[in-house]
Design a protein around this nucleic acid. Structure first.
Lengths: 252, 252
DNA sequence: TAGTGGTCTAGACCACCCT
DNA sequence: GGGTGGTCTAGACCACTAC
């Protein structure tokens, strides 16, 4: 018979489909090229559209495809490396491509309050910023700065816009930065972050939580939301190395 | 009428469902508790099972739920912090909970060869290891070590099992480590990694690629696959801090 | 207006775990 | 064997984009 031994291990259809499509992307498509639409592709492979979509979702998760409603599915460029590590200890955005958006005074979320070592009642400055790299937004950040960290600012009555955000960052920069630590985990984009990142709500993101230490305490906490589909976070100087794809392939 | 203004922004059902379920998890469930099955839950909320599953998938992605086929859906504990950062420069596993599995001599994948600065023809030792934390597997790793990095080993004719893996690591440890850098990105588990991690193929994982520098060149490259649902990768000493949930909630 | 991806439904069957 | 989550189908309608 024409059957191989592999028939005895019924691989899910969408998984096989993902493999086939992935290989086709390598060999028959170029970056930016648009794929046939989902209905055509599903028909071509003889599966339901939902099954095809499961395969496309995987490929999108791995950063190989980009899908946009009303437009189509395109072949994604390799992920860009964005430096998030403490190559040198520095307050965020001092030498970087962060753009302050606005700043409000608010009560911190419980998790942030715990990191700051303060209660949820103590008001903090919440600076919202965007990080742009390669011409497109890659991250949305909320930087929580306790009022105690920037005492000079309290008296100033500036509006809550970008001007105030810059003022907070300027005051923060006057403190001697003693250290920082970071954590990275998977999350899904909240509605507001998704908008900033030009993605749909729920899109997979990498959450980078950073604590900044100064004057013997936690002087600020940053929660940055990076697009997981387009970004590879680098710690150290590996950002300049090109990776072929997010997913390694096993040598045969 | 009983309609609110929010009706004008038709939030997807699964998104609303995710929010409702998430709040229920906070207030009415304890860690480890098992939820009603998907068919019951779908009926209770008046949606199709597929729609409910979309919500559950999001919550699982955020590390709030754990689903196991044949068993059920349980409330997940907060993600554990696993240290991956260079708290101090050290060869991997010197002070850690890594467990060598086996070691084969093979040709490196193209992406790894590029990082090593060698061709895909030059054979390398591929050491496979598992990392266990809190009693469960959290990472599967492939450590690629060019034969040139461990010259003493070449002559030894040990079998390809754990003994050989330990031998490679021992030889590697004799080199003076000059530095390392890391990259983190989102991926999906290959079949073999998924098995090691006790997950289904395609499960979301955090890929940590590390380059180890010694003797003026890249002496080894590690590709580690961390479970994204249960792990929060920490860089520095933030591992001991408890985070309530992977996803921050906005202060109202 | 036409075409795309995003959401949703109501079923069916399968693989796996436990008893 | 009975119950669970995982896969798959064949439709339908919606939201968005571009022309």
């Amino acid at each position: 018979m024409g059957t191989t031994q592999l028939e005895s291990v019924p691989e899910p259809k969408y998984w096989h489909l993902k493999t086939v499509l992935g290989e086709a992307l390598d060999s028959e498509f170029t970056v930016g090229e648009i794929l046939p639409n989902e209905r055509d592709l599903a028909a071509r492979f003889g599966v339901a559209r939902a099954t095809l979509r499961q395969a496309l979702e995987q490929l999108e998760l791995e950063g190989r495809l980009q899908r946009r409603r009303g437009v189509g599915t395109t072949v994604a460029p390799p992920r860009m490396g964005v430096e998030v590590g403490p190559a040198q200890n520095a307050w965020p955005g001092e030498t970087d491509d962060w753009q302050p958006a606005d700043c409000v005074q608010t009560a911190p979320p419980a998790a942030v309050a715990k990191l700051l070592g303060c209660g949820t009642q103590e008001p903090v400055h919440a600076v919202r910023r965007s990080r742009v790299s390669g011409g497109q937004p890659v991250a949305a950040e909320l930087l929580y700065v306790p009022a105690a960290s920037v005492p000079e600012l309290s008296a100033i009555e500036t509006p809550g816009g970008p001007a105030r955000a810059r003022a907070v960052l300027r005051e923060l920069g006057r403190l001697g930065l003693e250290g920082e630590d970071r954590a990275v985990e998977l999350g899904s984009a909240r509605a507001d972050d998704a908008k900033q990142l030009d993605r749909l709500p729920g899109a997979p993101v990498l959450l980078v939580t950073t604590r900044y230490f100064a004057q013997g305490r936690t002087a600020a906490v940053s929660v940055a939301t990076y697009r997981a589909d387009t970004c590879r976070l680098t710690f150290g100087d590996s950002g300049d190395v090109q990776i072929d794809h997010g997913q390694e392939r096993r040598a045969s």
